[in-house]
Design a binder for these strands. Structure first.
Lengths: 198, 198
DNA sequence: ATTCGACCAAAAATCTAAAACGTTCCAAAA
DNA sequence: TTTTGGAACGTTTTAGATTTTTGGTCGAAT
């Protein structure tokens, strides 16, 4: 029974891997179950033995990407860097991911707005998580005496919000990678030291 | 000839006023030239005597709103407040405007994405202007010794970018006005004083 | 100088039949 | 029992042909 369960999970992984490739090629909507089935060399109805439907597959794909991200985030959080560097590393990594995802989901290229809904749906799931991560960093910095933050929750929200502003030129590819990095660095300098003279 | 020019300009103003009402009611795409003409009680072809076309009317409408805004901005800039307060006032005013405009253009309610393109098109026109305004404030603060900014241009860009992050929950009305104001205040505190202890 | 009805090409809305789609069912294979 | 795929179902999407609406032009009338 263990073997059976394992092969079941193995097949799920197999499907997720293949689906990831197909989704990243055609986007969510343009990918049909037949596309996935063909790539797997199975009948499409077989997929329904392992997944409830198309959205569940996509959810699984996104979840796996998120898991990979969580590992990286944990590495950063557990590292011995000063918190300012942790934050810097985290922000840059996050921006790389967003850029990747925006290509991946083809938010812009696709005509339909279903994608916007879907994007929002999945984003909401990770919004709170992101605020938590930033707050954790801020908390650590406060405890170590490196930072001085008035309200942890609000500050984390403010930082995440500011990062979202950076997404806009990134996703619409108005901004090159070089100038984006400059803006990030400047934003973080302001974030760390403020602009008021004292 | 002066009279004629005046009446010409007067009629243009008349059209702009009426068009503003109709546009704010139906949005850009859903209002037809006939709608505007009917509201003006004219034949629609008469409008073309004063304006080149629909987009020019809309442009004029937006420009007039922008002019009203510029007056307010000038008041703030010329006031005797400390620059930190100027910035605070400016940011809050800007957010009010965005909220107004997002209702006005009905970015969300409308199904089509033409509106997104159009919004972007008009936004680009004022993006540089906004960065200039913020940079002006930063410059004044630096000259008066109130602020200490490394790179004026980059910092202005960073601040404007962060403000755009705030637009997202504002436009999609995910965030109430109260909590928005808290986030703004917190963002500005961070902006002014940073989060690094010293 | 100003207004407007008639007109045009292009775009948008409307309709319909066929194709494609996600999903279910079931019998057969493993 | 687990796994598979062919057939079938109801729904959504698509394509094409048709009609309506729209933004814009023109020339005549005032």
């Amino acid at each position: 029974m263990n073997q059976l369960e394992d092969s079941h999970k193995g097949m799920r992984e197999n499907i997720i891997s293949t689906a990831t490739e197909v989704f990243s090629r055609y986007g969510f909507k343009k990918t049909s179950m037949e596309d996935i089935a063909r790539a797997l060399r199975m009948g499409k109805s077989s997929i329904y033995y392992y997944f409830k439907g198309k959205e569940e597959i996509f959810q699984a794909v996104v979840d796996r990407e998120a898991d990979l991200l969580r590992v990286k985030v944990k590495e950063i959080l557990d590292s011995a860097q000063p918190v300012t560097e942790k934050l810097r590393t985290y922000v840059k990594m996050r921006m790389d991911l967003i850029k990747q995802l925006s290509n991946y989901m083809e938010i812009l290229k696709n005509d339909d707005l279903m994608n916007l809904e879907l994007t929002e749906k999945f984003r909401k799931k990770y919004d709170d998580e992101e605020i938590t991560i930033v707050r954790q960093i801020l908390e650590e910095g406060t405890n170590k005496g490196e930072l001085k933050v008035k309200d942890l929750n609000l500050s984390a929200l403010a930082i995440v919000t500011a990062m979202k502003g950076l997404e806009i030129p990134l996703v619409s590819s108005t901004m090159g990678v070089e100038s984006l990095n400059m803006v990030i660095d400047d934003m973080l300098d302001i974030l760390f030291f403020g602009i008021v003279k004292r």
